[in-house]
Amino acid sequence: MFGYTFYWSMVWEKLPELINGAKTTLVLTVLSMILGTLIALALTLLRQQNKGLGYALATSWIEVARNTPALFQVYMIYFGLGALGLHFSSYLAMLLALSFNNAGYLAEIFRGGMQAIPRQQHRAARSLGISSLGTYTHVVFPQLFRIVYFPYVNQLNWALLNSSLGMIIGLRELTGATQAAQSESFRTFEFFIIAAMIYFAMSKLIEGGARFTFWRMFKG
């Protein structure tokens, strides 16, 4: 096509490096979602107060995370904080940036889910002698995660794709590994076709796994 000659043998030689990059991508995505979820739950509870320092902090976090580019957030953590003397490795900087971004979006998803849970359930749980923490742990959060399950999975996929920004700070996740491999062989088209297929496969596996898990947890 257009006189272009494909050389797939070079891609197969570098395929183990791409697979290792994909593993880094998956681990980074999962860790950032775990941290982002924990932070988002805290932000959601702080937003429930509707006033005070905690509310202001949570609102600011969410607004910044949702209304600035993810690329900007990566730059600020890796280069911006570095200029202030806070130096992070590429991996840690990307983990912090993804977690920050995930927390902002997930907090809004959780807030919407919380509004779908009748307030009477809070009062009923407290009237039974269940503590405030116990009410959230045993009554609110189980319902919340069922309500927000699929938006949560969408954010997981978004985090997977956003992890590709690690390339700009030297991280050898899938995109970084692909960029490094093609720079040695100059076979850009072949390498990025394979990388795109790996991303597509990971995304579809997450989607399929999420549907199966939902069926097993809530429908089975």
Rank of each mutant, 00 (worst) to 15 (best):
I117M: 08
G112W: 12
S127A: 14
V140A: 09
Q143D: 11
G166W: 12
Y152W: 11
G129R: 05
F145N: 03
Q115H: 11
S132V: 07
I130N: 12
S131A: 09
N154Q: 08
R126I: 08
L165E: 10
P151V: 00
W158Q: 01
E173K: 01
T137K: 11
T137P: 07
G112Q: 08
R126G: 13
Q143K: 05
V153T: 02
A125H: 08
E173A: 04
Y136F: 14
F141S: 02
T137H: 13
L133A: 13
I130S: 11
P142I: 03
G134A: 10
P118Q: 11
F150V: 00
F145M: 01
Q115G: 07
G134T: 04
Y149P: 00
A116E: 13
S131K: 03
R119T: 09
L133P: 05
R119A: 12
L165V: 06
F145E: 06
T137W: 15
R172A: 13
A116I: 00
S132P: 10
I117S: 09
G170N: 00
N162C: 07
Q115T: 05
S131H: 10
I147C: 06
V148K: 00
G129I: 05
R172E: 15
M114H: 10
L133G: 09
I130M: 14
I130D: 14
V139H: 10
L144T: 00
Y149K: 01
F141T: 03
V140M: 13
N157Y: 00
R146L: 09
V153I: 08
G134F: 12
F145A: 00
N154W: 02
L171A: 07
S163L: 05
A159F: 06
F150N: 02
N157P: 03
R126Y: 15
A124T: 05
S131M: 10
A125N: 06
Y152C: 02
V140I: 14
N162L: 08
L144R: 00
G166L: 05
E173T: 01
M114L: 14
V140T: 09
I147H: 06
I147K: 04
G166Q: 07
Y152M: 03
R123P: 12
G112Y: 12
